[in-house]
């Protein structure tokens, strides 16, 4: 019963004549936990923006929950890259999380009890309820990441897109975040992009490589050739007692 929720067919994106994504085919199913790795500038954020409908591909077709990305994105939760907000912005955690409900609230109306209940539950899920009155900049990187995840969760998404969620998060906190994702994937599909191969660790169940072109076999296996094509240099993988095999055996 794994329905397809996102489909990209032959998607190309150009900025000022330079291609950022080439010939990308991707299919994401319900409850997938997909890790996408690739070097900085390889088009990872661009790919997420295409799924969100923030960028229109110059060629190719994108379907999100059976609709155009603009219509389908109400089922998509997005956690943007950490560095892109003003840490001094005068806003409390509670108000940041409620922002995720803005499109569900009627325009010109106040937030309903249901909105507030969802915000409360989301903060509880990410274990940040105790901080709800704090200003956003007072939190550590990992805590801010949890708040942005809660903001995505209040809209009750069926797909969660995470852009470099492990950047600026220290390693004990990274493990905790992965445990949180493990909990969330019972309820939704998750796509996590990162430039850091080790950040996309044992928790994901599918891996793709992206550097303008996407290498993806709908599985957790990556070939050394894929990695080398992606990073354009020989890549050596050191596994940390991983129970799964990430790379195929060399023949």
């Amino acid at each position: 019963m794994n329905e397809e929720i996102v489909r990209l067919e032959d998607a190309w994106v150009h900025f000022d004549g330079v291609s950022v994504l080439e010939e990308v085919d991707l299919s994401i199913n319900q409850y997938d936990f997909l890790g996408i790795i690739g070097p900085n500038g390889g088009g990872k954020t661009t790919l997420l923006k295409v799924i969100l409908g923030l960028l229109k591909p110059s060629r190719g077709k994108v379907t999100v929950f059976g609709h155009t990305p603009e219509k389908g994105r109400k089922f998509v939760g997005y956690v943007p890259q950490y560095s892109l907000f003003d840490r001094d912005f005068p806003v409390s955690i509670w108000d940041v999380v409620l922002m995720g409900r803005l499109e569900h609230k009627k325009r010109f109306k106040r937030f309903s009890e249901e909105d507030k209940k969802l915000a409360y539950d989301a903060l509880e899920t990410v274990e940040m309820l105790d901080f709800k009155d704090a200003q956003i900049g007072k939190l550590s990187g990992g805590q801010q990441q949890r708040v942005f995840i809660a903001r995505a969760l209040v809209a009750e998404p069926k797909l969660l897109l995470l852009d470099e969620p492990m950047a600026s998060v220290d390693s004990p906190m990274q493990t905790e975040l992965y445990e949180l994702f493990e909990k969330l994937r019972q309820r939704m599909a998750i796509v996590l992009v990162s430039h850091d191969i080790s950040a996309v660790s044992i928790y994901v169940d599918k891996i793709a490589c992206l550097n303008r072109r996407l290498f993806y076999h709908d599985s957790k296996e990556l070939t050394a050739e894929d990695l080398e094509a992606t990073y354009q240099c020989p890549v050596e993988i050191i596994a940390h007692g991983v129970p799964h095999r990430v790379l195929k055996e060399h023949k």
């Binding site: 969100l52 994105r73 109400k74 892109l84 912005f89 940041v96 995720g100 803005l102 903001r151």
Partner: peptide, 14 residues
């Protein structure tokens, strides 16, 4: 408040 805090995010929620 939402467009002042993070306009791109505000776009993604519609």
């Amino acid at each position: 408040q939402a467009i002042s805090f993070d306009e791109e995010y505000a776009t993604t929620i519609g």
